Simulated assay, not measured.
Amino acid sequence: MPKMTGDEARRRFAGERAVTLATTDGAGCPHLVPVTFALSGDAVVFAVDHKPKRSQRLKRLANIAADPSVCLLADFYDEDWERLWWTRADGTARVLPPPAESAESASYAELLVAKYSRQYGDRPPQGPVVEITVERWTGWRAA
Protein backbone atom coordinates (compact mmCIF):
# COMPACT_ATOMS: atom_id res chain seq x y z
CA MET A 1 0.00 0.00 0.00
CA PRO A 2 1.68 3.19 -1.16
CA LYS A 3 2.24 5.87 1.43
CA MET A 4 2.30 9.45 0.26
CA THR A 5 5.12 11.88 0.73
CA GLY A 6 4.32 14.87 2.92
CA ASP A 7 4.36 17.09 -0.19
CA GLU A 8 1.87 14.90 -2.05
CA ALA A 9 -0.38 14.71 1.02
CA ARG A 10 -0.33 18.51 1.35
CA ARG A 11 -1.05 18.98 -2.37
CA ARG A 12 -4.05 16.63 -2.36
CA PHE A 13 -5.34 18.16 0.88
CA ALA A 14 -5.08 21.68 -0.57
CA GLY A 15 -7.20 20.69 -3.56
CA GLU A 16 -10.20 19.68 -1.46
CA ARG A 17 -13.20 21.92 -0.79
CA ALA A 18 -13.95 20.59 2.72
CA VAL A 19 -12.18 18.39 5.25
CA THR A 20 -13.11 16.77 8.55
CA LEU A 21 -11.79 18.36 11.74
CA ALA A 22 -11.15 16.09 14.72
CA THR A 23 -10.90 17.61 18.20
CA THR A 24 -11.22 16.22 21.71
CA ASP A 25 -12.83 17.72 24.76
CA GLY A 26 -11.30 17.96 28.22
CA ALA A 27 -12.33 14.35 28.97
CA GLY A 28 -10.75 13.06 25.76
CA CYS A 29 -14.05 12.47 23.93
CA PRO A 30 -13.60 12.90 20.18
CA HIS A 31 -15.65 15.31 18.08
CA LEU A 32 -15.71 15.36 14.27
CA VAL A 33 -17.11 18.14 12.11
CA PRO A 34 -16.66 19.12 8.45
CA VAL A 35 -15.01 22.48 7.82
CA THR A 36 -14.20 24.64 4.82
CA PHE A 37 -10.62 25.87 4.93
CA ALA A 38 -7.74 27.65 3.27
CA LEU A 39 -4.00 27.09 3.43
CA SER A 40 -1.40 29.68 4.29
CA GLY A 41 1.97 27.96 4.07
CA ASP A 42 1.72 25.07 6.50
CA ALA A 43 -1.19 26.63 8.37
CA VAL A 44 -4.76 25.51 7.80
CA VAL A 45 -7.36 28.16 8.62
CA PHE A 46 -11.12 28.18 8.96
CA ALA A 47 -13.62 30.60 10.43
CA VAL A 48 -17.00 30.62 12.08
CA ASP A 49 -19.27 31.82 9.32
CA HIS A 50 -22.94 32.45 8.56
CA LYS A 51 -23.90 28.81 7.84
CA PRO A 52 -26.71 27.77 10.21
CA LYS A 53 -25.53 26.33 13.53
CA ARG A 54 -27.41 25.17 16.60
CA SER A 55 -25.44 27.59 18.75
CA GLN A 56 -22.67 30.17 18.46
CA ARG A 57 -20.92 28.38 21.35
CA LEU A 58 -19.31 25.83 19.08
CA LYS A 59 -17.94 22.61 20.54
CA ARG A 60 -14.97 22.71 18.17
CA LEU A 61 -13.84 26.03 19.70
CA ALA A 62 -14.34 24.81 23.27
CA ASN A 63 -12.44 21.63 22.46
CA ILE A 64 -9.51 23.58 20.99
CA ALA A 65 -9.39 25.65 24.18
CA ALA A 66 -9.28 22.41 26.22
CA ASP A 67 -6.79 20.59 23.94
CA PRO A 68 -5.24 22.38 20.97
CA SER A 69 -4.00 19.15 19.33
CA VAL A 70 -6.18 18.55 16.28
CA CYS A 71 -6.31 16.46 13.14
CA LEU A 72 -7.83 17.23 9.75
CA LEU A 73 -8.73 14.53 7.23
CA ALA A 74 -9.37 14.77 3.50
CA ASP A 75 -10.41 11.59 1.75
CA PHE A 76 -11.53 10.37 -1.64
CA TYR A 77 -13.78 7.37 -2.15
CA ASP A 78 -14.62 5.70 -5.44
CA GLU A 79 -16.19 2.37 -6.35
CA ASP A 80 -12.91 1.69 -8.15
CA TRP A 81 -10.78 1.02 -5.11
CA GLU A 82 -7.61 1.67 -7.08
CA ARG A 83 -8.53 5.37 -6.88
CA LEU A 84 -8.94 5.59 -3.07
CA TRP A 85 -6.80 7.97 -1.05
CA TRP A 86 -6.73 9.93 2.18
CA THR A 87 -4.49 12.63 3.57
CA ARG A 88 -4.17 13.96 7.09
CA ALA A 89 -2.82 17.11 8.69
CA ASP A 90 -1.87 16.84 12.37
CA GLY A 91 -1.23 20.06 14.21
CA THR A 92 -1.86 22.56 16.95
CA ALA A 93 -4.81 24.94 16.78
CA ARG A 94 -5.42 28.36 18.22
CA VAL A 95 -8.57 30.44 18.15
CA LEU A 96 -8.10 34.00 16.93
CA PRO A 97 -10.50 36.93 17.30
CA PRO A 98 -12.98 37.76 14.52
CA PRO A 99 -11.61 39.55 11.43
CA ALA A 100 -13.01 42.91 12.55
CA GLU A 101 -10.77 42.72 15.64
CA SER A 102 -7.55 41.29 14.19
CA ALA A 103 -5.46 42.02 11.10
CA GLU A 104 -4.20 38.42 11.15
CA SER A 105 -7.75 37.07 11.19
CA ALA A 106 -8.75 39.52 8.45
CA SER A 107 -5.95 38.25 6.19
CA TYR A 108 -7.06 34.65 6.82
CA ALA A 109 -10.68 35.61 6.08
CA GLU A 110 -9.48 37.05 2.75
CA LEU A 111 -7.96 33.66 1.89
CA LEU A 112 -11.27 31.98 2.66
CA VAL A 113 -13.19 34.50 0.56
CA ALA A 114 -10.78 33.92 -2.34
CA LYS A 115 -11.26 30.14 -2.17
CA TYR A 116 -15.04 30.23 -1.60
CA SER A 117 -15.93 33.37 -3.55
CA ARG A 118 -19.40 32.13 -4.46
CA GLN A 119 -20.29 31.34 -0.85
CA TYR A 120 -18.43 34.17 0.90
CA GLY A 121 -18.39 36.86 -1.80
CA ASP A 122 -21.10 39.00 -0.23
CA ARG A 123 -20.91 37.53 3.29
CA PRO A 124 -17.31 37.00 4.42
CA PRO A 125 -16.76 35.12 7.69
CA GLN A 126 -17.36 37.37 10.70
CA GLY A 127 -16.71 34.97 13.58
CA PRO A 128 -13.57 33.71 15.28
CA VAL A 129 -10.85 32.30 13.04
CA VAL A 130 -8.96 29.10 13.80
CA GLU A 131 -5.34 28.72 12.74
CA ILE A 132 -3.85 25.22 12.76
CA THR A 133 -0.09 24.97 12.52
CA VAL A 134 0.47 21.67 10.73
CA GLU A 135 3.31 19.66 12.21
CA ARG A 136 2.87 16.57 10.02
CA TRP A 137 1.31 15.81 6.64
CA THR A 138 0.61 12.11 6.00
CA GLY A 139 -1.42 10.14 3.53
CA TRP A 140 -2.14 6.91 1.72
CA ARG A 141 -3.26 6.03 -1.79
CA ALA A 142 -4.35 2.72 -3.22
CA ALA A 143 -2.27 2.93 -6.38
Results as ranks from 00 to 15, higher is better:
A103I: 09
L96N: 04
S102V: 08
A89C: 13
L84Q: 02
L111A: 04
S102C: 14
R54Y: 12
W86Y: 12
D80G: 07
L32M: 09
T36E: 14
I64D: 10
L96F: 03
P124K: 09
Y116S: 09
S107Y: 00
F76G: 01
D25L: 05
A43T: 11
S102K: 04
E79V: 12
G15N: 09
D25I: 10
D42R: 03
G121W: 07
W86C: 09
Y108V: 01
S69N: 09
R54F: 12
V113G: 04
V95D: 00
D49E: 15
Y120N: 03
P34R: 03
K115F: 03
A103V: 13
R88I: 10
L84N: 01
T24G: 04
P98V: 08
R60E: 01
R57V: 12
L58S: 02
K51A: 14
A66C: 03
W85G: 05
A66K: 05
S105C: 07
K51P: 11
P30F: 07
P68Y: 04
S117N: 12
G26N: 08
A62S: 15
C71M: 11
P52I: 02
D90G: 03
P97V: 04
G121N: 12
A106S: 13
D122Q: 14
L21K: 08
L73G: 07
